[in-house]
Design a protein around this nucleic acid. Structure first.
Lengths: 215, 215
DNA sequence: CAGTGATGTCAGCGCTGTTGACACCCGATC
DNA sequence: GATCGGGTGTCAACAGCGCTGACATCACTG
């Protein structure tokens, strides 16, 4: 038993990740400093460096756990389209709450852990749908990038900022911006709905392409 | 003439924004510190506070200029679909180079400046396409969010990180991840192409819906 | 029983954005 | 023409950040 300490040292990777996630959910401020993390743990801030190389490694560990939870806790049913939709919406939910941690994954592919289940399922579903073999990777990339990118973008938005944009658009000179001023009041009223609309567009088109092939 | 100084003080909002953009393009590091900015201008770092409230205001000013340039420099031709595609691809190009500055816009809608042209055109094109009036805002949101979100996400990627993911996927146990390991080698080979693929999916679906209405 | 490695503490480095006091210099006013 | 005042740049400094290296402590091992 080389790594674990039977008497249990106060800290461990799991305990630290727990505390980190607790802090992110508590404060709406999604950027948790190591000093805040230390005081949450009742420990010197630099103590976490005994368990993680740097802050990014904490974030990726947290992200990996979150992704694994998504995959585990998800019961998918229905055809490929419903399942794919549900899977990506679940991904959106977790990215909405923890954009920081999950974005850290992008630049630091974790060393073989748990969070890969959804990627596997996503690709499997595209294959099942009948997407041409050489289009599967690129279709996956498009769906993934839309889901993650749009969600991280949406996660930053606040009611104020959205209202601010409506306001700005409404105040523009109607002569130069006829369409914009007319539409302003209807913009950004429900960004989740807008995301789903875009996702359905993509799924529609994939379905149509598949039908075209099969015929 | 209250604001301008005839003898020309060394600094001005434009000069500062110039220097900022110069720095972003020079260093690939997209995060420019005020101290770097000061030394680029040959001036004390805090001098810029005489012209901007805070760093965010510099970023939004830069972003506004960039957006205005996109709209001005763009000759659109063809049907609504080609024009919309070209417009969003142009938006992607500038977001790819200046993700930081343009993201600052999201939270700080600028006080009535220039960068709104593309939004107006985008909405106009959707109307021209024949999208149902009550769907125009949400369709615009979906396209905008995809373009910006996906592009900002892509802007962070490096050749290394993409290769890292391919590597990670390839090394997974083929038993549990049959689809993923099989597809790994074909992933993330051309993220621009993947973005265009997703964009075409959305435009396909919009076109199909419009045809459905007209019939 | 000595030693070794893991863990937590502490002081501190270099960086960040930002503030307030100060000096200057130019243009307007009496 | 001297005097004021506001816009501008300088400077020192603050609080926060991620992170490092030296040190103390403790538990287990040979």
């Amino acid at each position: 038993m080389p790594a674990q300490n039977p008497v249990a040292s106060r800290l461990s990777r799991d305990v630290i990740v727990d505390a980190y996630l607790r802090l992110v959910e508590a404060e709406d401020n999604d950027s948790v400093s190591l000093r805040r993390l230390g005081s949450e743990l009742g420990v010197d801030p630099t103590a976490v460096y005994r368990h993680f190389r740097d802050k990014d490694e904490i974030l990726t560990a947290a992200a990996d756990r979150l992704l694994a939870e998504v995959t585990d806790g998800l019961e998918l049913s229905g055809g490929w389209r419903d399942q794919l939709r549900e899977l990506l919406l679940a991904l959106r939910r977790v990215y909405l709450v923890h954009p920081r941690a999950l974005l850290a994954l992008q630049l630091a592919p974790p060393r073989l852990e748990n969070g890969f289940g959804n990627v596997e399922r996503c690709i499997a579903l595209l294959r099942e749908a009948g997407v041409a073999e050489d289009e599967v990777p690129i279709a996956y990339e498009a769906l993934e990038t839309y889901t993650i990118g749009a969600t991280v973008f949406d996660a930053r938005a606040t009611e104020e900022s959205l209202a601010g944009w409506r306001q700005v658009y409404r105040m523009l000179p109607a002569g130069r911006f006829p369409n914009l001023t007319a539409t302003a009041a209807s913009l950004y009223l429900d960004i989740d709905k807008a995301f789903r609309y875009g996702l359905d567009l993509m799924l529609d088109a994939i379905e149509a392409r598949v039908r075209g092939i099969e015929r």
